[in-house]
Amino acid sequence: MKRIIPMWIAIIAGFAMMLSSFVPLAESAGEMFADVFNVVAAIAFVLGAGSLAKQHLEKLSRRDAGWGYSVITLGSFLITLFIGMLKIGIHPNPSFPQAAYSGSNDAEGSAWSWIYEYMITPLTSTMFALLAFFVASAAFRAFRAKNTEAILLLVTAFIVLLGRTFAGVVLTGWFPDWASGLRLENLSIYVMQVFNTAGNRAIMIGIALGVAATGLRILFGIDRSWLGGGDA
C-alpha cells in the first residue's frame, strides 16, 4: 500500500499534466505547478536544515576528529539564519515606512549584505575560479592524440582556443581575403555553426527521446526504481 498509492499519484498527476498542455483552459497548469513546487521546496528546507544540524551535532557529541569544523558550520548556519529571517538591522522601505519588514535584506550596509559580500561572494566565486586550474591540468593529461576521436577533440579545442584571442589574429590575420574563411577566428565560428550545431542538435533530439521514454517508463509504472527497488 505504501508503494501503490504513490505510484498511482505519479501516474495520474503525470498524465493529467501531459494532457493539460493541450487543453487551452488548463495551459497554465504548468506555471501553477512551478509555484507549488517552489513552495514545497522552500518548506522542505526544514528537512535539509534538520539533516545538516543532525550530522554536525552528532559529530560534535561524539567528538569526532574535526568536530571543531562542525562548530563553525553550525554557528555560521544559525547566525546567518537568525540575521536573515528576522531582517536584523534592515530599515523599512522608504516608500512604505509603515510596514516594519518591507525593507530588503540586500540593503547596502546591512549585516546580511556584509555576509553576502565578504563571505558568500569570495568563497563561492573562488571555488568557481578553481576551474581555471583544473581545465589546464585536464587539458595536459587528457588531450593526447591517441586515436582519431582524441585528435579531433584536441585539434578543435586548439583552433577555438587560438581563434578566440589576439593570438589568432596575429597568426592568421595576414591571410588574403579570398582565404579569410581559414583565419582562425572565422574557422572557430565555422566549427561552431556547423559541427557544433550538428552535434548539439543530435544530442538534443536524443535527449528529448530519452526524456520521453524515461517519463513514459514512470507514467506506465514500468520503472519504479525511483520509488526504490524493483517491484512493488
Binding site: A136, A139, L154, L161
Partner: peptide, 10 residues
C-alpha cells in the same frame, strides 16, 4: 599556456 600544455602533453 593551455595550447603549450596540450603540445607538451602530445
Amino acid at each position: 599556456l593551455m595550447v603549450g600544455l596540450i603540445i607538451v602533453g602530445n
